[in-house]
Design a protein around this nucleic acid. Structure first.
Lengths: 327, 327
DNA sequence: TTGAAAGCGCTAACAA
DNA sequence: TTGTTAGCGCTTTCAA
């Protein structure tokens, strides 16, 4: 069943033309008469010829692969996000006959990425998440390979695709303020992720003039629950969660403690997902489009690989979803 | 910063030897004096030379990539599983300087995989999940490329790596029987996945002589809840869940309805995960090692790529974890 | 509009 | 033990 695949030479011989002609018919580069072009293409179609990308790659020093880098230790909610992003990347890549080479990193341990870079296995890289002082970004810059990050970074000269988290969070916060909330708590995770910092800043800006309490570094459920207890004790009117995972834990805790939403405590989340989607009452949150993030990142990267220089930062839209939880 | 990389020619010239000598020093193939070998290797080390895998690939018709195929629409619990498997694959692959090209399929829509196959982008493929009448397996067979499946299949001549689900489930079921359970319900999903069929069979075998009720095709939460209601109404003593996602929904439903575990209903799961790990009371379940599955699959595949013919089926171990939920 | 020929960087017979 | 010489299958000048 291992069909010896056709080569460009076979086709040339068969059709009585030169390799060059065949090559040109396929790539569309250079002048060719429509007739011969058609003849070649027809033959290719009929005989189901597929060019050897390895050979083409060697000739043009391209791999037709792009690297997709994600944390190897994501929790549930991030896994979902990355999965959707990746689907966007895959779809956009396929349009250009590119494939996805996946690599995991563990925080600042980027040995996997380094290998891929050293071995020239990809023509460009998409970084699925940005950290503060990101080692991956440093390595990518050093390698000279085109790359784009999903998520923002403080590093200079990096092409980034992101939602405007600061504006989004600011907007959600100020809407809450307009609805008459007099005090609010933000519960967030560690600030080594850029997005976490952005959300905090948006919250603070949007809530200016309102009594706020900030609980950061809440990664474990117990830490989140402790923050909720504090917020309840301090009679905060609304808890704003940095992401859906935190929100999930917050909802669980409030339920456990018999705190009614929204009567006794309002709740909003800076990120929604399947995790909190079906909760009753429905949770006010920001809504993004992870897949679009992936598609945009990939298209941008492909343009860069083709030698273009896209804008440094591309911002995608968001939606504020007001629901019953902040009534 | 785009350093023109060294080629094997540069090294040869620099060292006054032939390309062949350099090539041999690197690959270790053919006889070479230790002295020259060392000289070459030292030079390589010092100048941080990395061979061009594209060129090597063209010469040996290898890509040094292996394909990793997973469903594009997995839910939470499967995402976790695949993530862990994949980490095993990545680690094993890295040892052989291989990388992972990821492709998603949607049920029997395997166009992504087909592209990768047609374009010869990988030297072998690992299928992350097997379906009944799996189109992907057909395509892989047809392509002639080595591949291994994670999960079993009824197809002939397929190298498979799997846990012995039937035995595992049979064992858990019969332990429950020995503990004096007189009736049990199985709640499971659709039987298009091979593993689902296997678990059902194991359950039935292990429970022989006990009154059983089988609720299959439970994919949505409401369907699972309805099954739970039926089981409770029929005074079944124990609910056995086909996987953790189902178990999660079952636990939620029982809690909602105020059914105490294990006093009023015992609960066991044929798969555990973070989803039900921390539940109180602890849930009796089967425990597997997804990462080991990935490593084994990858090592097996690499052996096949090297021309070896491994055993058709590799079974990995499991553990029965008896916990308070079936006391 | 087409073709000849020289690579891309490496491997692998075959000689020496 | 080492070197010479063809390729691997495609792209891309440069000529015709």
């Amino acid at each position: 069943m291992i069909t010896e695949s056709l080569t460009i030479d076979d086709i040339a011989r068969e059709l009585g033309v030169s390799k060059t002609t065949v090559s040109r018919s396929i790539s569309g580069k250079g002048r060719i008469s429509e007739t011969t072009r058609k003849r070649v293409l027809d033959f290719i179609e009929k005989n189901n010829y597929k060019p050897n990308l390895m050979a083409r790659g060697l000739a043009q020093s391209r791999t037709y692969n792009i690297g997709w880098v994600v944390p190897g230790d994501s929790e549930m909610t991030m896994l979902f996000f990355f999965q959707k992003c990746m689907q966007g990347v895959i779809d956009a890549a396929a349009e250009a006959d590119y494939d996805i080479l996946i690599t995991t990193v563990y925080g600042h341990n980027i040995s996997g990425l380094q290998r891929v870079l050293d071995n020239h296995k990809v023509d460009g890289v998409i970084l699925g998440q940005t950290l503060v002082h990101d080692k991956a970004i440093r390595a990518l810059k050093k390698s000279g390979i085109p790359f784009v990050t999903i998520g923002s970074t403080e590093e200079k000269n990096v092409v980034q695709v992101d939602h405007d988290h600061i504006s989004a969070c600011r907007e959600l916060a100020s809407i809450l303020k307009m609805k008459g909330i007099k005090s609010a708590a933000l519960i967030g995770g560690t600030e080594d992720k850029v997005v976490t910092q952005a959300r905090r800043r948006g919250f603070e800006e949007g809530m200016s003039g309102v009594r706020t309490e900030i609980f950061m570094d809440c990664e474990k459920t117990e830490e989140i629950e402790r923050a909720v207890e504090d917020a309840v004790r301090n009679k905060v009117e609304c808890i704003v969660c940095e992401d859906d995972r935190i929100c999930y834990a917050v909802l669980g805790k409030l339920k456990k403690d018999g705190v009614r939403i929204p009567e006794e405590m309002r709740v909003a989340s800076f990120y929604n997902s399947a995790l909190i989607d079906e909760y009753q009452p429905a949770i006010t949150s920001l809504e993004y489009d992870p897949k679009a993030l992936g598609t945009t990142a990939c298209r941008t990267l492909l343009a860069m690989i083709d030698g273009q220089t896209p804008g440094a930062k591309q911002m995608l839209g968001y939606e504020v979803m007001l629901k019953a939880s902040t009534l």
